[in-house]
Amino acid sequence: MIARRDLLVGAGCAAALGAAEYLRPRRALKLLRDGETMARVIPGAFAGWSIGEGGDIVMPETPGSLASRLYSDRVARTYRHADGDGSEEVMLLAAYGAAQSDVLQLHRPEVCYPAVGFTIKERRLVSLPVAPGVTVPAVLLSAQAGGRMEDVAYWTRLGDDLPQTGGDQRWVRLRAAMAGYVGDGVLVRASMLRRGGEPSFPILQQFLSQMLMSTAARDRAALIGRTRADALARV
């Protein structure tokens, strides 16, 4: 005779298997156009900003490394403004992952910077203004290592969502799984070394806003999702 406990265990296992099957992604949501790359999507010159001499920063790929598994495409650049003396530089990183799941997911700067010896000194959640009626949920933070202070502005996109926190990011992945799809994602990060006592947040926010407005309309969804890309197209 089957014990009641065995029946309960069997029912629990069956329920778990059913839930896993229900949450298994059945389709992909990919907003980066086929054949496109981050290097081509993000303009190399806009609003007086341009890539410094030497072009994009070469980022060596190590097969099997965490970065190679998380991101299928990355671009890193240093921009300088034509009106400046060259001392003000904005470092841009755009890291794209074709599939965001519980195993492979974007790493937020709040995690990455401390992992390499930085201490987060300040962090703010903001709505980055791009155009009238259009904002991007973003994060501003300052990180310090010794005498080096770096100010950062960034956002993350998972599918059509732009989660500002790790908790938001987990919730977005769960909703996607319940809807039966897995989305692609991108981390867009701009940073500056602080030269004085005040944070560089205003410069970074303006830089990112101008970059988005200068990005081709057909490619904006890859950076900020379809809803905000459509809103910008109507501005």
Rank of each mutant, 00 (worst) to 15 (best):
95 A>W: 13
131 A>W: 04
151 D>I: 02
47 A>V: 05
5 R>S: 11
174 L>D: 04
220 R>G: 12
216 A>K: 15
10 G>T: 09
51 I>M: 14
6 D>H: 05
69 R>G: 06
138 A>F: 07
221 A>F: 08
72 S>W: 09
184 D>E: 14
13 C>V: 15
211 M>N: 06
146 G>P: 05
233 A>K: 10
111 V>K: 10
47 A>S: 15
31 L>M: 08
72 S>I: 04
191 S>A: 11
88 E>G: 05
229 A>Q: 08
45 A>S: 13
26 R>L: 04
35 G>T: 10
115 A>R: 14
189 R>D: 03
96 Y>N: 07
16 A>E: 05
78 T>N: 13
12 G>K: 03
189 R>Q: 14
198 E>L: 12
107 H>G: 02
176 A>M: 05
55 G>A: 08
124 R>A: 12
205 Q>F: 01
125 L>H: 10
40 R>A: 11
99 A>I: 12
106 L>V: 14
64 G>L: 05
165 T>N: 02
22 Y>C: 00
144 Q>P: 02
148 R>W: 01
55 G>W: 09
59 M>T: 14
184 D>T: 11
103 V>N: 07
76 A>P: 00
77 R>T: 08
219 D>Q: 15
182 V>S: 04
132 P>Q: 15
123 R>G: 00
119 T>I: 12
95 A>Q: 12
76 A>E: 11
205 Q>P: 00
30 K>W: 01
86 G>P: 13
13 C>K: 06
144 Q>G: 03
134 V>I: 15
203 I>W: 00
170 R>L: 14
132 P>C: 14
91 M>Q: 13
85 D>E: 10
46 F>Q: 04
135 T>C: 06
2 I>G: 04
51 I>L: 15
193 L>S: 12
16 A>D: 06
184 D>C: 13
229 A>K: 08
131 A>S: 12
